[in-house]
Design a protein around this nucleic acid. Sequence first.
DNA 1: TACTGTGAAGTGATTCACAGCG
DNA 2: CGCTGTGAATCACTTCACAGTA
Lengths: 219, 219
Amino acid sequence: MARKRDSALSEATTQRISLILRALRVLQAEGTPTISSHLLAERFGLNSAQIRKDLAQLGELGVRGLGYRVPVLSDDLRRRMGLDRTNGVVIVGAGNLGQALADSRNFNSDGFRVAGLFDDDRRKIGGRTRTGVLILDAGKLHEIVPPLGARIGVIAVPGEEAQRVALALVQAGLNALLNFAPTTVGPFPGTIVKNADLTLFLESLACQLEESVGAGRGR
Amino acid sequence: MARKRDSALSEATTQRISLILRALRVLQAEGTPTISSHLLAERFGLNSAQIRKDLAQLGELGVRGLGYRVPVLSDDLRRRMGLDRTNGVVIVGAGNLGQALADSRNFNSDGFRVAGLFDDDRRKIGGRTRTGVLILDAGKLHEIVPPLGARIGVIAVPGEEAQRVALALVQAGLNALLNFAPTTVGPFPGTIVKNADLTLFLESLACQLEESVGAGRGR
DNA sequence: TACTGTGAAGTGATTCACAGCG
DNA sequence: CGCTGTGAATCACTTCACAGTA
């Protein structure tokens, strides 16, 4: 069967694939050799048809009559997601959040590594986070980032500076950005931007909450 | 026109409403008295029809021939999202991320306030974050949380503990959870859970990145 | 006239259901 | 026979386009 190289994976699909990989890690730790889409769906709260559709987009990864071979699929997904190499992550903004991210397990495991933490505050530059990550000069992004070989940029600065920092990261050669600031950044052609705005989560949650309790009130 | 009290707002809608409110704050600061959906869309990268659809779901908020009155709409949205009161936020997990969130501007502004930070590590309990937020005993959630009057729970613990903590928060009377752990929690009937899993963002981003550069490679 | 609110059309994602293969 | 991969059907969300109103 021909690979679908033309159409990009949708946002929803990439998230589910990441979720499936997470499930596979659990199964692999248990030593389960194969798993059917039904069992996988049942155990991890997903939908079996969707699992098959998602995985089929990457090629014929399953075996009819048997299911998916856990180690094989796991390796394949990891390779497809670029987790077989170590992806360098550059973080700009050494405030509470930026430092927490730099020190975090999540950003230093299974395919990811914090390659650099930047700030433009002279008093912070040269200092270190709790776990010892050195804080670099954000003014020199374009010099320092390229040799680091990083692929992903994280924006952890106040909203006012987000767009400027985003642009600097793109100019430094990164084409995948994760933005935690409460401002939409981009768009930049050829660059993938994902907004993970904490305020937005909170407000959206408050809105849904209000909606659900509000239904009981007068109007 | 009758209010739509039957159908809940979709996830996408609540997020856009939050985005619209953010835009209104900018306009209000500028002193703009009214704004049309077209102008609003153009300036903030949204779609005008969508803005009208979203807002129309909350009632007849606009004025035909004129647009929306910025202060009126702003107040109305804030009320609808429950931002006119101060929403208490309880954070469980005083690790790097939990402390960063507790100290963060985002969680202590415009309708939100950190009402409590919890951990189950004896060495942390009684201590304080950089900005002085006291760390409380996570074992006593069910005693401490109800009198705080908090409405939203934030999970900032390692994946293994996430489900247990989520359950404890629900039992303590919260029905809106924001989960930062790399594990899907819930579902709990009557409780809104939003997963904001940092690892998922990163992996999903890596996947899209790989997909886009991968197109150029052999297969 | 300039705009909103909204049916209708269009698009994309999800689920169903089954042909076909190991 | 059991399971995947996938067309067809369904569902949800988005965009268009315009009737109706201040």
